[in-house]
């Protein structure tokens, strides 16, 4: 029964877990803290050794991201602020459409059995598996020929393609959680399947749609490989733009850190709002009914 040895083991285990958690938290949170701190540092303070925790904040990084103040770009390329606008347009449009198409496909995959369903599901998933650079070898040529290179429309297309697989799979998981009786009862009562889908089933998976949109948005918003190869001047997104932020004076660390902070804020808000659904729904429907 409870003797001193087992309780010693318990105690050691508990302290070990706590210790590991603290170490991990430092590893996890430290860089974020450093990112935020550095986004307010002037060039002087960045390289000071030992690093300063207290300093006069410098807003030049944020000013350049939002296109105000001294830090203006040359006329040959879009400014950092324009790239932020590009990022917003591309990721919002891409996410919405990917989730829309993914929801439709996920519903059909959840409810119907049709020939080639397994193949279709795998085909869809392959969009998530494909290495971007592999298809980029051809996209590069294809986009140039079709006049899609360096356009936001082209990037939206890419964002849909890159997220539709994830959207379909996650949504299928959420639809699997809705009992089939919902539609059966509606159909017995003389409503169409379409009505049952739009008026009954969709409202039941609202949370799932939000979670799916959250994930797709994170990927679209942060996407780099496609945007860096397929844009040259006009359609550059913020991640691409900051990767080129190395002027004559070396890498613009302050600007990169500021852009990092700006990039994370919408995702953070979105994530916090949909956290419940992320916790409950992210099981892709593979755990079955319990």
């Amino acid at each position: 029964m409870t003797n001193s040895r087992t309780s010693m083991v318990d105690l050691v285990t508990r302290w070990l877990i706590l210790g590991l958690l603290i170490v991990y938290t430092i590893y996890n949170v430290g860089p974020i803290f450093w990112l935020i701190l550095s986004s307010f540092k002037s060039r002087m303070d960045l390289f000071t050794m030992p690093p300063k925790l207290f300093f006069t904040p410098d807003f030049s990084g944020y000013q350049s991201v939002f296109g105000v103040g001294a830090a203006k770009d040359s006329a040959s390329s879009v400014g950092v602020f324009d790239s932020l606008v590009n990022s917003i347009i591309v990721s919002v449009a891409g996410t919405s459409l990917a989730v829309f198409f993914g929801t439709l496909a996920g519903y059909v995959c959840s409810r119907f059995n049709f020939r080639g369903k397994g193949d279709f599901m795998f085909f869809v998933l392959s969009t998530r598996m494909l290495p971007p650079v592999a298809v980029l070898v051809f996209y590069h040529l294809m986009f140039a020929r079709l006049g899609l290179a360096d356009t936001r429309f082209g990037l939206v297309l890419v964002a849909i393609f890159a997220n539709i697989g994830l959207a379909t799979w996650i949504m299928k998981g959420f639809f699997d959680g809705v009992p089939k009786e919902v539609e059966q009862i509606a159909i017995v009562n003389g409503y169409t399947r379409m009505y049952a889908f739009t008026r009954l089933v969709l409202p039941m998976v609202k949370g799932g749609i939000a979670a799916t949109a959250g994930f797709c948005f994170i990927f679209a918003w942060n996407e780099f490989a496609f945007a860096s190869i397929l844009t040259t001047t006009q359609a550059k997104t913020l991640p691409v733009k900051i990767s080129a932020a190395s002027g004559a004076t070396g890498i613009e660390w302050t600007q990169i850190c500021a852009a990092g902070v700006v990039l994370i804020i919408p995702v953070l808000i979105f994530f916090y709002l949909i956290r419940k659904h992320l916790l409950m729904g992210m099981t892709f429907g593979v755990l079955g009914r319990r």
Binding site: N28, V29, P31, I32, W221, P239, L268, Y272, R275, L279
Partner: peptide, 18 residues
Amino acid sequence: FTILMMPMMLSPVVVGFL
């Protein structure tokens, strides 16, 4: 939970530079 999830919300490029 949200704070611990922050790293995965960043762009891989930003992570690389950071």
